[in-house]
Design a protein around this nucleic acid. Structure first.
Lengths: 133, 133
DNA sequence: CGGTTGATGATAACGAGTATCATATTGAAA
DNA sequence: TTTCAATATGATACTCGTTATCATCAACCG
């Protein structure tokens, strides 16, 4: 078996720290900007690489916002789940959708589709941002 | 009341025709390429503009594929619905999800979110593409 | 048939994300 | 602790989908 080497670098620690300190989805660009303005000299490519690896490894979630930009967030629940994301501030609730999984499989089968995956996210205004209007 | 002027041009007719002749989601780039290779001199910007307007007007559906590219397709059902899209060939079934709507509203309410919108699409391999493997 | 005004298309610009590559760090062996 | 090969980094150039700009064109109204 080939063991994949994974080194611990200060850059990845900084990214993990920042993700660990918030409940909101952030973009790679924003994360990079935050780190730079905090004094880091981290490169943009490094941020993208780290986030992609974390996402592939399952320790962070990713969604695409309405502009097609990818947003990342530290994963609270390890199991499959969906998100209720505030359009304005990015604040997020992880939610379970017990029926959806089974429903999706059923619909796929009905039409002869295989290897089915589903994407579902809810976007709205959180309580705070609702009041601010 | 201000009536928005909307002119009927041959370019928009060509786009509508092409969309009307397929059940698959296509990208603006592909649509443009198809028209050009069929002899049209239509510009890329025109294709984007037309598709956006049609999408905003509700006569075509749009989804984002896994790469963030926007795909368009003529809308069969006028009511709210979701899609089961083949990852390989783009073939699509429009599907209804009776419970999702109500469920989404309930979840949103539970967390104090307002003005909630939901995005859900299923991606898989259609029967034909399944066999081709 | 004009004339007004929205539509078009070539092109430049934009922005997220990726590839490249020389340099710097890591981690483990000597 | 020193060495050193393998991996990570970061500056930069690049890709590619999409949007903005603007001079020109052509629908539609009279």
């Amino acid at each position: 078996m080939v063991t994949v080497q994974r080194r611990n670098t200060s850059q990845r620690a900084a990214i993990a720290d920042l993700l660990g300190g918030t409940d909101e989805f952030v973009s790679a660009q924003d994360l990079h900007a935050s780190l730079r303005s905090a004094g880091s000299t981290i490169g943009l490519a490094t941020v993208y690489r780290a986030l992609q690896e974390m996402s592939a490894g399952g320790s962070v979630d990713s969604v695409r916002n309405e502009h097609g930009e990818v947003l990342y967030r530290q994963c609270a629940a390890p199991a499959h789940h969906h998100h209720l994301v505030c359009r304005t501030c990015g604040k997020t609730q992880e939610i379970k959708a017990p029926g959806v999984e089974r429903w999706a499989r059923g619909v796929a089968e009905e039409f002869g589709y295989t290897d089915v995956d589903h994407h579902m996210e809810l976007f709205g205004l959180c309580a705070t941002c609702s009041k601010a209007r």
